[in-house]
Structure formats: structure tokens, C-alpha cells
Amino acid sequence: MRVLNDNLRNLFGKFQCEQSDVKISFTTFCRMRPKEFNLTQYISRNRCLCQKHQNMALLLKSVKAAGANVPLNPEDFIKRVQNNDINANEIMTGVKDDKVSYEQWKRVDCEDGKKRMKIVQHQVSRDELAAFFIKQTCEFQEHTQRIKEQYKAMSDLKHGLPPNHVIVQMDFAENFTCVSADEVQSAYWNQNSITLHPVVAYYKNDEGTLNHYSYIIVSDDLGHNSGSVFAFIQKLLLPQMREDIPNIKHIHHWTVSPSSQYRNKGTFQVVSDHMNLFAVSASWNYFESGHGKGPCDGLGGTAKRMADLAVRQNKCKIQDAKAIFEWGNSSQTSIKYLFVGSEFITEVRSDLEQKNIKSVSSVRHHENQSSECSINENYIVLLPRLSFW
């Protein structure tokens, strides 16, 4: 199945210019369109892509347009470089122009004082582009290698998961927006949002078979930060998991790595004192930036789709966090819904702030490194089996 990249009226004009001796009407031209070619309305947009992958794709596109013989797919390009089919140092020999332009996704300052991601165009000399291209190629090769190592580590951990160990993979979903089947105008402009935090817990039963439990943590607090994460673990996640999976001895946390949510001093403090707080040891692993998609994304999307469908079918009215929590537990699904109120989350944030954990200097990324943890004078010195990528 293919999709046209232009509308039929423009394509008909091009056809008339190229085939002036063929006389057909626009209606006949549309009727003769092959069925396997869909219209432009079926063109999809890709969202939440990896910034490093997209920047490499934009760079390859610009280099190829300038005359270099390179594939447009970043993954194919790296494979050919690793197989010595392409010499990255000789690619720019095909570029003849002295000035070359390329585009990159970057965070730029806007007029309102905020920073936003935009595609920025650069115009540089051929030598400057060659140096930048070599640098990007090396960084992208390391990026793809870390991704492969992480996915392999997760797969190996699932296959060799020790008894009484649990893998907890979690992530914030996009907030659920409360709507009604028949909604008045003023309600449309004052819609309520709900925080959804999907969690998937993997464990092995007595027969050694890998099973899992699916949880959706619901909250009326919209702050996606370390205080929320700590509250979710402290209030309901670990108590509920102990009820579902008895005799837990160690938890392997796997999350994405935004500093506002999981990779920060608050989370480091929690995991460093995990045994004292929850009577169970833990390690925390981070996925490479832009590549943390997994079962939590599907779990969150399924929950929101089912809730929206129930509202449209007039089976329930979801107007706040408690309503979706009650609906979720009453629906016939294997997903377990847990509720954490904003009051408790506010208390947890306050407790974390009172600990006055000071930030360490810039934490560099390391591959496959872990260490014991100790806290001295409110400084986190080392992190307990905390994987940086």
C-alpha cells in the first residue's frame, strides 16, 4: 500500500504538462487511480521520535543533497560504516559546493522567554560540515550501541530473573483529559486533566515462567517529578506488589531518563535508602534518551482509549481522578488501578525538600557501571547499582 505525496488536482496538472498529447478529463484521471495508492489524507505523522536519530537523518539528507553518496536511513548508514562499506572520512569528497546548509532539531529561545524545540537551519563551509559530520557519526554510533546493550540487558534480565526478584518498568503517560458525551461549551474550555502513571511488574512464578502485573496509578496531582514518583512507590505500588507478589527481595527499576522525573537527586536519594524505606533492596536503570518506549506506553494508551470509549457509550461519567479510578476497578480488565491524592504527594515533596540533599557536580554517563552507595553529610557520594547510559 502506497500513499500519494500530493493532491490529485496538482498531480493532474503535472500529468497534463508531461503528457500533453493525452486528452482526458480530471474525473477520468481520478477514476483511473490505482486502488493500492491512497490519497494524501492517509499520510501519517511520526511523533515522539529520538532527537539524535532525527538529527542524523536530517544531516544525511543534507549531505546527500549536496552530492555525497550516503543512505538516508541512519541505521543503514551506521551498519555500512561498521561493515567498512562506507568511509565516513571520505564521504565529503562528493560535496563540491563551498557553502552547504543543513538542518537540526535544537532548543531555542523564543520571544516569550521560553525555550522550545525547533528545526534550525545552519549554513557552513564544506570543511566545517565535514568536521561536524564526523563528530555526529561518532556520537550516533555510540548512541546506537548503548541502545542495543540496554535492550540486551533487559532481555537477559527477564530470561535469567532470580527468584523473588521483580522488574518494575514505569513511565508517565500523557495526561487524560476529562470529557463528556454531551458537553456544554463552557466545559469544553475548562477541561480537567488527570495524571496516569502506568507500571508493569515482571516476576517468575514457582514453575519459572515469566509473568507480569499491570498497574495504572491515578492522581489529581499534575506534577510529574521525583516527589510524585516517590509517593507512588511509597503509598500504593510496593504495598500492592507485596500483596500480588509475596517475598520480594530485590526490585529492578527500569525507567526513561528525564531529569525532571526519574534521573535527579530526589530519586537517587530514594534508591540509595531503598532498603531502610521499604525493607527491600533495589537498583535503578535508565534507558537511552528517546528510546524508553515499552509496555507502559501501550498500557497507558489502552487505559485512555477504554475510558474514552466508555464515556462515549454513556457507560460512565469521568470528570475527575477518582471517577476514572472507580471506573477502572469496576471494568472487567486485568489492569489494576491505584489512586494517590494530591495531599499525600504534597507531603512527600515537602519531606524530600527537608532532607536537603545537595546536588553533586555534573554526573557523567557511564556504560555498564554500578557501585555501592553511601551518604555522607547530606551528599550522595555514590549510587547503588545505578546504571547510566
Rank of each mutant, 00 (worst) to 15 (best):
F230G: 00
R33K: 15
C110G: 04
A307F: 13
S125I: 09
K355Q: 10
L383I: 14
R107T: 10
N10W: 04
S281C: 03
N225L: 06
T40A: 05
D76L: 15
T93Q: 07
M170H: 03
N314I: 09
R242K: 13
N38W: 05
W284V: 02
V70T: 05
G266M: 09
P258T: 03
H224E: 06
I216S: 01
I251P: 08
M306N: 05
L72Q: 13
H291T: 04
E353W: 14
I217M: 06
H122I: 07
N264W: 05
D320Q: 10
E347L: 15
P295H: 03
D220K: 04
S257K: 11
S125G: 15
V229A: 01
K115G: 11
N69V: 14
V348Y: 00
K355P: 05
C296V: 13
E103M: 12
T93G: 00
E343Y: 04
P295F: 01
P384D: 01
F15R: 04
R349M: 08
G67R: 08
A153P: 03
T346F: 12
T255R: 02
G298A: 04
V340N: 05
H165K: 05
C178M: 09
D308K: 06
C50V: 00
D127H: 11
I217S: 01
V229P: 01
N7L: 12
M1F: 09
Y286P: 00
S214C: 08
F339G: 02
S359K: 15
F388S: 11
Q121S: 13
Q319H: 06
P163L: 00
L4H: 08
N376A: 05
N5P: 05
Y262V: 07
L238P: 12
K64R: 14
F29Y: 14
Q169L: 11
E353Q: 15
P162D: 06
K304M: 10
E36R: 10
I318H: 11
H53T: 14
K265T: 15
R45K: 13
A66N: 06
D171M: 02
Y262C: 03
L338C: 01
S219N: 04
R126S: 02
D182H: 11
G298W: 03
E75F: 07
Q369W: 09
H143Y: 07
S180P: 00
W327T: 04
D156A: 02
N356S: 04
N378V: 05
V256W: 11
A231Y: 07
L338K: 09
I375E: 02
S283T: 12
I324L: 09
D109F: 11
N164A: 02
H253Y: 15
A323W: 11
D76E: 15
F287H: 12
D273T: 15
N87L: 09
T144R: 13
D156I: 06
S359Q: 14
A231P: 08
E288C: 14
N73F: 00
V100Q: 07
